[in-house]
């Protein structure tokens, strides 16, 4: 009954763990793709097929390809792997791990709906999302376009200085 939810949720968590702990960048990217795909599965099971599709296309597709390209250009090798391992000694985990555990505990403690037995979810199709997006939230869409434009210009600018300087 709960095989599929358990599988996809567990896969998400395992993938995320591997991203955080893996010393090799390309492997981490592949784990991140796995995480995102299983997260897309979760989204689909929550009745958000549109969001799931976007997660696959934009996140696991476009953004991850960006990561792969950059890692290719960085030309990482064995020294980098060793350095990563050096940086990931158990001692380095103490502070961040503590902070993360505290934050996680607080989040779980602070979510009262976790004890809410009535957890039914309703599917929302792309039509509703579209109507909402270009109705109520049209101003926000404009703002998001500004943001993307700013991101584009910034990335272009930084990349240009990269090319022109020797």
């Amino acid at each position: 009954m709960y095989v599929l939810p358990l599988l996809s949720g567990g896969l998400t968590l395992v993938g995320a763990m591997m991203v955080v702990t893996c010393p090799v960048a390309v492997h981490a990217v592949l784990y991140l793709v796995v995480t995102l795909l299983s997260l897309a599965m979760v989204l689909a099971m929550l009745g958000a097929q549109f969001a799931a599709a976007l997660e696959i296309i934009i996140y696991a597709g476009a953004i991850m390809v960006l990561f792969v390209f950059v890692i290719m250009m960085l030309n990482l090798g064995q020294p980098d792997r060793d350095r990563e391992k050096e940086w990931l000694r158990p001692r380095a985990w103490i502070g961040p791990g503590l902070l993360a555990v505290v934050a996680c505990g607080e989040l779980l403690y602070g979510l009262p709906t976790l004890s809410d037995p009535d957890g039914a979810v309703f599917p929302i199709d792309a039509r509703d999302v579209g109507l909402s997006l270009f109705g109520t939230y049209v101003l926000m869409v404009e703002l998001a376009s500004f943001l993307l434009l700013a991101g584009l210009v910034t990335a272009f600018h930084i990349g240009r200085t990269l090319r022109e300087r020797p």
Binding site: L99, A100, V102, A103, E106, L107, Y109, G110
Partner: peptide, 13 residues
């Protein structure tokens, strides 16, 4: 930031 977040959450709860 995380420490501040933790403190704020704790205070709120």
């Amino acid at each position: 930031i995380v420490a501040g977040l933790g403190a704020a959450l704790a205070w709120a709860m």
